[in-house]
Design a protein around this nucleic acid. Structure first.
Length: 670
RNA sequence: GCGCCCGUAGCUCAGAGGAUAGAGCAUCGGCCUUCUAAGCCGAGGGUCGCAGGUUCAAUUCCUGCCGGGCGCGCCA
């Protein structure tokens, strides 16, 4: 934890600046706290003297010197120096800081694990995954789930109560298409479909069938009327098509949940679109929208007969513009059916508790942590269930192509006067996952002799069945890792090889999905994903495993565990930590490991998880470098040995925690 | 046409006002009788797309341009 020190430094600096230069509090600039490039220069630094140079009409260096002189003593700070260039460099009390961190390490923390079903005020609802329940999950879905689940964990780390929802579009065209496939292409009865679901990989089966249906429509566009019929049946219920659709969606969702569970991703609640319709959520939302005039019936033009919402432009065009191109979004079609946006508006209102209605709830299954996975229901289910909805903030994790619609969602909230909620409704957007040309070629989606175009990637298409299935990717990664684990640890059982390989595979996938900025298109390359070297999840795990090994040996040889090492430090001279050995490597490692809380704040502020990934990688790199340069178990100087061991224990704990935020577990050995 | 995003080393990407622009991969060269070599050390490799502007300070902010992507449906 480094943030408390940042705050202490800021508070004192602010007070000193006000007093020294007679500055009113509001004219104190934002006090940026940075880290000098080398520890010799200090541990924290602030460029505040540069900012004040102009207003005070003084050289930065002179200001820095005056401030340094006036700062006085501050708990945890050993000294403050004005650098020749004007920086104010701050040196921490290394021994006190390290002792403090080690002590906290063995205290219970706020919430490192996952505590869901949390009714404290300020609840955040995170909606993620939301895969159409008509085919297997693919790598694009993995990015969504990895980001969404990381958001959940990071918020929980900060003590924010979180409710995780997975939205199931069970009444959309995609499910309808698979129903059409079973009926029209395969002429299967409901019983035969059940048999397939029980005996085959149902999500894989539907993956192929869905692609075939797409082709079948393309061969004869007239067949689209069959789709329309199926969709109508599904929306209204009561027909066999509707029953089949429900069956398909339910079984495919079960497949998705199983896939996600492999990746340490789970949910509190499944929200079904069908229930939003059946429970008249949309009807209620529609009433509200009409009352406030947010939607209106278009009487002429090409949208005649539709209920539409006016689309706000960011900057209204000048009035002299040819005004008739004002843009409208259809919410209710002229045939009376509601569009996706309409249903989403109703759902969003419910999330904030603005609808005045609630779902019924039933249990869907049991989660990996033993807790209940809840599902919405159209008819009364379990009498007692947790309180869902009523969020203070919402995060909708959906790729950037949905930005336009997510904007409309916020606009609807604003139009109805819920400006606060509009403000707290976040579209967590990210770019898509595509395939690298090489991988697309390997999979046969790109002709072998086709030139890579300028794009540098090939879009995946569930519709055409082109993509890498999540379970296939995991299976490949696991077998690759399994062979490596077995080679290195022949004395382990096959079951252990397997279990460790699974952890490594998850680390590889999840790290890969968060290490890029969310605004970057990922061109997924199978060879790159299979590499366990360099900036990868397994590299991070390996660093922690090394640290674990040191403690395993320490326990074995001397009966010392981490708390015991920390306890033994009392009164032991900290010469190496102080830099007496001519370097600051030990201290640099501890300081870096302490920054997790600061990084998490930055991550939440920017919703940029690549920062968390880079932090973890940088810390692991620093640890590996230290590990190579300095013996720990074999160090002859007893004092240095103890301090190094304590540092290793601290880094191990912090890195484990950091990986946990990304849903990555660390194997005991690898 | 309008809106959003991207352009930094051969490739993939960090850096988002501050100290000498970094990492992984690839290439080349070292390091396993001492805590696991999924590792470490070193070398080469950069007009930060281009042009202006703001600033004590710009790869970072603003404007324009060039190149690429995505979105703008009575699909979801």
């Amino acid at each position: 934890m480094i943030l408390p020190i940042h705050e202490r430094v800021r508070a004192r600096l602010s007070a000193v600046l006000q007093q020294l230069y007679q500055l009113p509090p509001e004219s104190i600039p934002v006090l940026a706290i940075e880290y000098p490039p080398k520890r010799e220069l200090g541990d924290l630094a602030t460029p505040v003297a540069f900012e004040l140079a102009r207003t005070l009409r003084k050289a930065p260096r002179a200001i820095a010197q005056e401030v340094a002189g006036a700062l006085g003593t501050l708990d945890g700070i050993s000294r403050v120096e004005a650098a020749p260039n004007g920086y104010l460099n701050i040196y921490l009390d290394r021994v006190a800081f390290t002792r403090d961190q080690l002590r906290r390490q063995h205290e219970p923390t706020i919430d490192d694990g996952r505590s869901t079903m949390d009714d404290r005020p300020g609840k955040a609802i995170v909606e993620h995954t939301a895969i159409n329940p008509n085919k297997a999950a693919h790598i694009g879905h993995l990015r969504n789930a990895a980001l969404g689940d990381t958001l959940v964990r990071v918020q929980q780390f900060r003590g924010v109560p979180v409710e995780v929802q997975n939205y199931i579009d069970d009444t959309g065209v995609q499910v309808a298409d698979v129903v059409v496939g079973f009926r029209e292409l395969e002429h299967k009865s409901f019983d035969e479909i059940r048999t397939i679901a029980d005996t085959a990989r149902f999500d894989y089966y539907c993956w192929d069938l869905y692609a075939r249906v797409t082709q079948w429509y393309e061969d004869d566009k007239a067949r689209l009327t069959i789709r329309a019929g199926a969709l109508h049946d599904i929306e209204h219920g009561g027909t066999e098509s509707a029953a089949i659709a429900e069956f398909i969606a339910t079984r495919i969702v079960a497949c998705h949940l199983k896939t996600m569970a492999r990746l340490n991703v789970d949910y509190d609640l499944l929200t079904w679109e069908g229930h939003i319709l059946k429970l008249q959520f949309w009807a209620r939302a529609f009433e509200i929208l009409k009352e406030k005039g947010a939607v209106y019936l278009q009487s002429d033009g090409k949208l005649a007969g539709c209920w539409v919402m006016r689309i706000e432009e960011d900057e209204p065009l000048p009035a002299d513009d040819e005004g008739d191109d004002e843009r409208e979004k259809v919410i209710v079609r002229s045939n009376g059916t509601v569009t996706y946006v309409g249903k989403d508006i109703a759902y969003q209102f419910w999330k904030f508790g603005l609808l005045g209605r609630d779902f019924h709830y039933k249990t869907f299954g049991t989660r990996a942590n033993g807790k209940v996975l809840w599902s919405t229901a159209a008819v009364p289910g379990e009498a007692s269930h947790p309180a869902f909805g009523n969020a203070a903030t919402t995060y909708n994790v959906i790729d950037v192509r949905q930005s336009y619609l997510q904007k409309l969602l916020k606009q609807a909230l604003r139009t109805l006067g819920h400006t606060e909620q509009a403000e707290r409704a976040t579209h967590f957007s990210y770019e898509m996952v595509a395939l690298s040309p090489a991988t697309a070629r390997t999979l046969g989606y790109l002709a072998a002799d086709a030139a890579d175009d300028k794009k540098g990637f090939v879009e995946v298409s569930g519709r055409r069945g082109q993509g890498v299935k999540a379970d296939d990717l995991l299976d490949t990664l696991i077998s690759r890792a399994e062979a490596e684990v077995a080679r290195r640890n022949p004395e382990f059982s096959a079951a252990d090889h397997r279990r460790i390989a699974e952890m490594i595979a998850v680390a590889a996938v999840r790290y890969f999905m968060v290490k890029y900025s969310r605004t970057k298109i990922i061109a997924f390359d199978i060879d790159e994903a299979l590499a366990f070297e360099g900036e990868s999840g397994p590299y991070l795990q390996y660093a922690v495993v090394r640290a674990q090994n040191i403690f395993a040996k320490l326990r074995e040889r001397e009966g010392l565990d981490e708390p015991a090492v920390a306890a033994k430090l009392a009164g032991v001279p900290a010469g190496e930590l102080a830099g007496n050995a001519g370097n600051h490597d030990l201290w640099a490692l501890i300081l870096e490991a302490a920054r997790l809380d600061e990084i998490v704040e930055q991550v939440v502020r920017t919703l940029e998880f690549s920062v968390l990934a880079k932090y973890a990688f940088g810390l692991a790199q620093m640890f590996n470098g230290f590990y190579h340069r300095y013996p720990i178990l074999n160090e002859e100087d007893a004092d240095a040995r103890l301090w190094r061991a304590a540092a290793v224990g601290y880094v191990r704990a912090q890195l484990t925690r950091t990986l946990g935020l990304m849903g990555i577990d660390v194997p005991p050995r690898m």
